[in-house]
Simulated scan of single mutants.
Amino acid sequence: MRNPSKAALIVTDMINTYDHADARLLMPSVRRALPGIRRLIERARHDGTDVIYVNDNFGRWRSQHDELLETALSGPHADLVEPVRPDDDAMFVVKARHSIFYETPLAYLLSQYGIGRIVLTGQVTEQCILYSALDAHIRHLKVTVARDAVAHIHEDLASAALRMMERNMGAEIVASEDPGVFG
């Protein structure tokens, strides 16, 4: 049974080679979001909050999470991955589409761990974070988004997405240093 006060930190799509069409627009925002993402990961690890990486497989259907991480860390943008790399206690879910829930075992995993609140961090605010917040909302999960720990491609769309998550989905939009971010 889910406990609405039990939280998990979801790190979305941060294991990335940045070898895609929008990377040039995305990377500056990732650099700005990295301190907030790191802060949340460190706090979650320290507090014993579950950390779950949900990451695109980039169409590499035979790859595993270790291979995705190794590929990203050996690429030219490893500096964007290394600071937020998973530790041995982190869980890892591979996704193929925008939502962290679409065709993944994440809902089952959250249910098994009794998690009723997710804290979203990572990329891209106006895409994967927005769609994941909506999918969490329709699954009756409480959603928190750390506005300084999500990266965007288009700032205006990201701002609109944060407003939509707050207004339409009841998401809490907070800063990564907010003491109540995990409930």
Rank of each mutant, 00 (worst) to 15 (best):
A72D: 08
I118N: 06
A146L: 07
G75E: 03
C128S: 13
L130N: 11
I153D: 05
L106G: 02
V150R: 00
A146E: 04
Q123R: 11
H154M: 08
T121G: 01
E103Q: 05
T104E: 05
Q127R: 08
L73T: 03
L157Y: 07
I129R: 00
N57P: 00
S111A: 13
T144W: 02
S63T: 13
E126M: 10
P105Q: 01
T144G: 05
C128V: 07
A78Q: 08
R62E: 12
T121P: 02
T104H: 04
V124K: 04
Y113K: 15
Q112L: 13
V150S: 10
L73Y: 03
F92H: 14
T104Y: 07
I115T: 11
H98L: 04
P86R: 06
F58D: 15
K95L: 09
A90D: 15
V145Y: 05
E103M: 01
Y113L: 15
Y113G: 10
D88A: 14
E155V: 15
E126A: 12
C128L: 06
I138V: 15
D88R: 09
D79K: 02
T121E: 03
E103A: 05
M91K: 11
H77L: 14
T104S: 08
R62M: 08
K95S: 06
A151V: 07
A151R: 06
A146F: 08
R62C: 04
H154F: 14
H98Y: 11
P76N: 02
Y102A: 04
D87W: 11
I115H: 09
A96K: 01
N55H: 10
P105E: 06
N55L: 06
D135T: 12
A136H: 02
E70Y: 11
D88I: 00
H98K: 01
L120P: 04
F92S: 10
K95T: 07
Y131K: 03
F92M: 12
V94I: 13
E70Q: 15
C128Q: 01
D87T: 13
A72R: 03
T144F: 04
G75H: 02
N55P: 07
V145Q: 04
F92C: 10
R147K: 15
D88K: 05
A136F: 05
T144D: 00
Y108F: 10
D156N: 14
P105M: 03
E155L: 15
G116Y: 06
L130M: 14
V145D: 05
L141Q: 06
H77G: 08
G116V: 09
V81C: 01
V124E: 04
A96D: 00
G122A: 10
H140G: 03
A107W: 04
E67M: 13
F101E: 00
Q127P: 01
E67Y: 09
L68P: 02
K142L: 15
R117E: 06
D156E: 15
R97D: 04
